[in-house]
Structures are given as C-alpha cells and as structure tokens.
Simulated scan of single mutants.
Amino acid sequence: MIHAVLHESEDTVGVAVVEGIKAGVELNAWIMDDDKLVTIVARQEIPIGHKVALKDMAVGDTVYKYGIDIGQVVAPIKAGEHAHVHNVKTKRW
C-alpha cells in the first residue's frame, strides 16, 4: 500500500494519500520520478493531504515538495512527523 507520494528523491516531505495514518505506522512513500518506494515510520498522526517529513530538518532548512522550495523550517521536525503551518512557513513573508 502507498501511504505518501513525492516527486523527487531530494524532496524532504511527502504528501499523505490515505486516511488514518497514526503514530507508529510504517509508511510506504512512492518516489514518482524514480518509481521506487522508501519506508518511514510515522511519529504523529498525518491527515490525508498533509505533509510528512522524510528526514530530520532543523530551523532554517528549506522544505522541498514536488521538487520545489515550498518554505523554511521554523521549528525542528523529525522524520515521520507532520510538517505543516506549526513548523514550516513560506519564505514570501
């Protein structure tokens, strides 16, 4: 089962594509450009359509989704955690 998708292997977050992801669930994330799977354990509940961190990120790191810079980390994020407005902000303002 595919739980999350990302475009490029360099992406730092994937998008949850199923409902009911709970902490402790082993997630299969499909890298579309490489057509391969990576596995990560969810540390938190991840709502469908939301981002899950694929690697540990520190404050100031750039977040990549679909191969694009989507923002900056404003609170540390561990691999498997929910990446959202509480820990990622746009660089536009």
Rank of each mutant, 00 (worst) to 15 (best):
M1T: 09
I2F: 09
A4Y: 07
A4F: 02
A4M: 03
V5N: 01
V5W: 00
L6G: 02
H7N: 14
E8M: 13
S9V: 12
E10D: 09
E10A: 13
E10C: 09
E10R: 14
T12I: 12
V13D: 10
V15H: 02
V15S: 06
V15Y: 01
A16H: 04
V17T: 11
V18W: 05
E19C: 06
E19N: 11
E19A: 13
G20Q: 11
I21Y: 02
I21L: 02
K22E: 15
K22A: 14
G24P: 05
G24A: 07
V25D: 14
V25I: 11
E26H: 03
E26P: 05
L27R: 05
A29S: 11
A29H: 00
W30Y: 15
W30S: 04
I31T: 09
M32Q: 13
M32V: 13
D33W: 07
D33Y: 09
D33P: 00
D33S: 15
D34T: 05
D35E: 15
L37S: 11
T39P: 00
T39I: 01
T39V: 10
I40K: 03
I40R: 13
I40H: 05
I40N: 03
A42K: 04
A42T: 06
A42Q: 03
R43Y: 01
Q44R: 08
Q44A: 12
E45S: 14
P47S: 09
P47W: 08
P47A: 07
H50M: 06
V52T: 08
V52D: 13
V52Y: 03
L54S: 09
L54E: 08
K55A: 15
D56E: 07
M57P: 04
A58G: 04
V59W: 02
G60V: 07
D61F: 12
T62Y: 01
Y64I: 15
Y64M: 14
K65A: 10
G67C: 08
I68T: 14
I68K: 11
I68C: 10
I70M: 09
I70K: 05
G71W: 03
G71C: 11
Q72M: 15
Q72D: 05
V73L: 10
V73Q: 07
V74T: 15
A75G: 07
A75E: 08
I77H: 01
I77D: 06
K78E: 14
A79G: 14
A79V: 12
G80C: 04
G80W: 00
E81C: 05
A83Y: 05
H84M: 03
H86K: 07
N87I: 12
N87D: 06
V88W: 00
K89M: 12
K89E: 15
K89T: 13
K89N: 08
T90D: 10
T90A: 15
K91I: 11
K91P: 00
R92W: 07
